[in-house]
């Protein structure tokens, strides 16, 4: 019998309704995640990395539509669930933190109240117990004077502190899975490092799995076990951290790695950006979506999508270049 993963996404397809047509955003992606694992999803803006994770809790915007696939959490498909069933999972077994902590908290309610809402909904704790739990949570995420801070409003918190409060809120029920949607993008670099440290520590203490969405490979290298690289709504390469960082096979992944500043790089050495822009999803046909920007593009790339190939266990790539290398080496 196949092992049940904590989360398994199978052939997920999502599209957005625009004025006239349905624009595909996610074109059949599959991945899985086990307990305690950290999965990084990397890609440019518009690659579908956020959308794919919002699907898990069915938090798509109104014009977004899941066209097919399955999202199995502890073996149960989340997609057919009704509003009440999914609400019982949200914030409880799976919780989420978002990109912009400045706008992700309701300005009219105290931070304590916003954490309490979640506790009220998912537990039977009484008022005093809830308060104790909130104080403990704020303390856990490194907010000083939690008794005082819980009675304050979001505007009385700095950006980093708000993200800590968001994390406290997300962890209030000890979730099995935390989805972190670019949690450090809106923060400055020192705060960014603190938040990542915090997430690393909490992951070990609470033994939860994390899906970490980002466009910053530097951030990913710090915290993730596995990495998925997304481009134009597809997974083009996936593997363990080591495989992606030291043995990447897709030109796009390579491009991403080359565009990260390195500390040992001399000042004369320039960063190598990836030329061009992501493709218009509406115009994509049967070609490899990266072929327009790829330095290695061959004739076949413009005609046919590359097959998914296994490089070694756990490392998969969809690229004709790698296909040819394999053929030439006679495997």
């Amino acid at each position: 019998m196949e092992k049940t993963h904590l989360l398994e996404v199978r052939d997920l397809k999502v599209s957005f309704a625009s004025k006239k047509t349905e624009v595909p955003a996610i074109q059949g992606i599959s991945y899985y995640l086990d307990e305690g694992e950290v999965l990084g999803i990397v890609g440019e803006s518009g690659s579908g990395k956020s959308v794919s994770s919002h699907c898990i809790l069915k938090l798509l915007p109104e014009n977004g539509k899941i066209q097919g696939g399955q999202i199995l959490f502890e073996g149960k498909d989340l997609l057919p669930m009704n509003a009440k069933q999914i609400a019982d999972i949200r914030g409880n077994k799976i919780s989420m933190i978002f990109q912009d902590p400045m706008t992700s908290l309701d300005p009219l309610f105290t931070v304590g109240h916003q954490i309490e809402e979640s506790l009220k909904k998912h537990t039977n704790l009484n008022k005093k117990q809830r308060e104790e739990r909130i104080i403990k949570l704020l303390d856990l995420v490194g907010i000083n004077q939690p008794e005082k801070r819980m009675k304050q409003y979001p505007h009385e918190f700095s950006g980093g502190m708000r993200q800590r409060a968001m994390i406290a809120m997300a962890l209030s029920l000890g979730p099995k899975l935390l989805i972190a949607d670019e949690p450090t993008t809106a923060l400055d670099v020192t705060i960014q490092a603190q938040i990542i440290e915090l997430l690393k520590r909490l992951k070990d203490e609470l033994h939860m799995a994390i899906i970490f969405i980002t466009h910053d490979l530097g951030v990913v290298s710090d915290i993730c076990d596995k990495i998925i690289v997304m481009y134009a709504g597809e997974i083009i390469e996936s593997g363990k951290k080591r495989q992606i960082f030291y043995d990447s096979r897709h030109p796009y992944t390579e491009g991403l790695l080359n565009s990260v500043p390195k500390i040992e790089q001399s000042r004369q050495e320039k960063l190598v950006p990836i030329e061009g822009n992501p493709p218009d999803m509406q115009l994509l046909g049967s070609e490899c979506p990266f072929s327009h920007r790829c330095g290695y593009a061959m004739n076949i790339c413009a005609r046919q999508k590359p097959p998914k190939l296994t490089v070694e266990e756990g490392h998969e790539v969809s690229c004709w270049k790698y296909y040819r290398e394999r053929m030439e080496s006679g495997e």
Binding site: L59, A87, G91, S95, F98, D106, E117, K121, M166
Partner: peptide, 26 residues
């Protein structure tokens, strides 16, 4: 369209709470 309503939903709050408490007050 505000992000904090998405946060409320992500916490498992019902649409009733999201709309009548958070959206209306704001």
């Amino acid at each position: 369209n505000q992000d904090y309503l998405r946060t409320e939903r992500a916490k498992g709050m019902s649409e009733r709470v999201v709309i009548f408490v958070h959206a209306l007050k704001n």
